[in-house]
Design a protein around this nucleic acid. Structure first.
Lengths: 195, 195
DNA sequence: TATTTTTAATTGACTGCTCAATCAATAAAA
DNA sequence: TTTTATTGATTGAGCAGTCAATTAAAAATA
């Protein structure tokens, strides 16, 4: 049944299937067979379009990084003052379309991969540095020198809330996560305003 | 070279070796061979004492959970007022003896395992529920009804800081993590004191 | 238009490797 | 002599990656 021009379609399907499969079996537990089956193609086709399992997983990671970066940029573009820009980042982190369990746990699987995989670590470091730089930039006018530590605190809390959101046992909602984050930010801003 | 009474010694050695090996290869990437080699024994011996790879990894997880719980209990026992008890939990989370990169990344590997592994999820849920219950209990007199969300925020931030500490790229120190946590707690307490 | 040729998509069958798990054999302590 | 510790050799399963064969669309040619 060969229709031409399948390459980009199949690649996308395989990446989306990989996210689901990784959620079910874990990053290292997943097989090309798992992914291909979910995408409705043979394992050989997955190899044909990606060359290797590593390539497919790496493409999946880049896909997620791209999605998150895009969501953040879109929201930052329409945010006004620094406080609104901080909130744009928080909201982007917990936007409903970023927040399926499969997406989160795949994201975090790559996080863990970065502990012992140089290539993954490099990609993740770029993302994290940009996130923290954005936060720092907008926090500086609000809290001055405390901005570095504060930005790291917010970044850590975002990832911690994701981690907990990925655990089915805890059933945490994005809205709750956002509320907790805003309490953190506002509490600190109120405390700084007094000193 | 059979000396009698090796069982508990070997089991402990294998568990410690497993932590190191998991740090290097990841939870699913690790093999019995990796672990056994690190412990200076044959793969067959690891099977002899643990029956299966799953058993060994599960024992390793229980070992970590036990260590963390013990550290927290010790510090809580000598803490006075609620604020000091909260701090005891924070300190236990970032005590130097709990904070080797290998320990952290192994801990977080189990976290990720819990996403798709029922047994691991059950163990982790017990730990997390206890942690949050402790925090909630001590925060209640300090912040009233906000204690539930606050406890979840602290728990999330602890795990987020661990996650970042596990990434070699970021080289974050336990002291910095503690500072960020204390800023969070104190900022929120100061904000509540005003309302 | 009809026919042939080229190109892309797709898979089943196969290969080789890694690894968990088993087991029989050996060695030393009790 | 019994029990415990220990390993080398082996088995069997699962999986990544390869390849040749098949199908159909598209392009070229008559």
């Amino acid at each position: 049944m060969p229709k031409r021009g399948m390459q980009p379609i199949r690649q996308r399907e395989l990446i989306l299937a990989a996210v689901e499969a990784i959620h079910e079996r874990g990053l290292n537990g997943v097989t090309m067979g798992d992914i291909a089956k979910r995408a409705g193609v043979s394992p050989a086709l997955a190899h044909h379009y990606f060359g290797s399992k590593d390539e497919l997983l790496s493409a999946t990671m880049r896909h997620l990084l791209g999605e998150f970066a895009l969501a953040a940029r879109r929201r930052l573009a329409v945010a006004g003052d620094p406080r609104a820009r901080v909130d744009a980042i928080l909201e982007a982190s917990f936007a409903p379309d970023q927040f399926s369990p499969a997406l989160i746990s795949t994201w975090l699987a790559f996080y863990m991969q970065s502990v012992h995989d140089k290539a993954a670590a490099r990609l993740l470091a770029i993302y994290l540095k940009r996130l923290e730089a954005n936060l720092r930039h907008d926090l500086r006018p609000l809290v001055g020198d405390g901005a570095v530590a504060f930005a790291r605190g917010i970044a850590a809390m975002i990832d911690g809330l994701w981690l907990h959101a990925a655990l089915p046992t805890l059933h945490r909602s994005p809205d709750e996560a956002l509320g907790i984050l805003r309490d953190y930010v506002d509490g600190r801003l109120a405390a700084v305003a007094l000193s």
